[in-house]
């Protein structure tokens, strides 16, 4: 019982072994749930996959039918003393089993596109990454300096923040049509949507972070002779840098959430084009694989950035082991 108590101690770190185990469970549990629903026949499985049509004229081998319909037709066939249809319990087509998705991870990259004008999956992905990169980069290029200025000087705070506060409530996708009209149908309007989705939040988040800088550091710097410009560049900027970096990691995650909407604008492109295309062909295993690839790219980027952060900011208090 005492070990159970240890697992739920308020704001106490778990022992290293428990931590690793629970981190693994965080991924293993959803996967297990998915496996159960997929591989245990009496869990859910609302459909029947026909293996032998029997006497039912419209049943075909490999067809998916509702279980009620299957039972009804079986009953009819039984009453008429005809050959019974045979079938296995199955899940709807939109829920592929884990092994199918795992296979799709491989085949999605190796299957050539159906038409010569279409793109391979890795090319689609590269398109998406470029759109994200440019959207986020351009937003940061303007948003970070504005945020720091607004967080440092009341003047800029009053000048920028009321308007930005208003603008951030305007949904970015609503500017889709406008962006296409102005910027054409290729990458530019998509980048614009990511920019609009990120920029306004970015300025506000970063100005808030900047305001959280310990004011006594500024006072100390002043008593050491630092004036306006030195205060900004030698105290405010380095002082907020680690927190700013953390904000950027979170904001990059938001940028990804705008990607799908952005890619539907103009000519559908990138990973979204791949997903919609595959969904149209009912290749849901590919759809799942593509969605997961987005997740994996997002998580991997964040982990890499987190590791980089540790190296970039060695003065940050090290977490206790």
């Amino acid at each position: 019982m005492s070990s159970f108590k240890q697992l739920f101690a308020v704001r106490k770190e778990l022992r290293p072994r428990s931590r690793v185990m629970i981190t693994v469970m965080s991924f293993a549990l959803p996967l297990l749930l998915w496996c159960l629903v997929s591989y245990v026949p009496w869990l859910w499985h609302p459909k029947v996959e026909i293996t032998e049509p029997g006497a039912v004229s419209y049943f075909k081998e490999g067809m998916l039918v509702d279980r009620e319909l299957f039972d009804e037709e079986s009953l009819k066939a039984k009453e008429a003393s005809k050959t019974l249809p045979q079938g296995d319990p199955a899940n709807p087509i939109y829920l592929p089993a884990p092994h199918e998705v795992a296979e799709a991870f491989y085949t999605a990259f190796t299957t050539p596109p159906k038409r010569r004008t279409e793109k391979w999956l890795h090319e689609s992905l590269w398109d998406s990454i470029q759109v994200i990169f440019w959207g986020f980069f351009l937003s940061s290029l303007i948003g970070v300096p504005l945020g720091i200025l607004a967080g440092t000087y009341d003047f800029f705070s009053r000048l920028f923040e009321p308007f930005i506060e208003f603008f951030r409530y305007l949904p970015a996708p609503a500017f889709g049509a406008l962006a296409v009209a102005i910027l054409g149908i290729h990458h530019a309007p998509k980048i614009a949507i990511i920019f609009i989705g990120t920029f306004f939040q970015q300025v506000l988040v970063i100005s808030n972070t900047t305001r959280k800088l310990d004011p006594s550091l500024l006072e100390a710097a002043q008593t050491l002779g630092a004036k306006n410009k030195a205060l900004l560049f030698r105290v405010v900027v380095p002082g907020v840098l680690p927190d700013l970096y953390r904000d950027m990691r979170i904001l990059l995650g938001w940028a990804w959430t705008y990607l799908i909407v952005a890619e539907l604008i103009g000519t559908s492109s990138g990973i979204t084009w791949f997903i919609t295309q595959q969904a149209r062909y009912k290749n849901f295993d590919n759809v799942f694989a593509a969605i997961m690839i987005i997740g994996i790219i997002g998580l991997a980027t964040d982990l890499i950035l987190a590791q980089m952060g540790k190296r970039l900011f060695p003065w940050q208090r090290k977490a206790k082991a």
Binding site: D214, S216, L217, E219, A220, A221, V235, P238, G239, L241, F313, W315
Partner: peptide
């Protein structure tokens, strides 16, 4: 100052 106010990044 009482709170040291050293610049943590230096």
């Amino acid at each position: 100052f009482q709170g040291y106010t050293l610049f943590p990044w230096l």
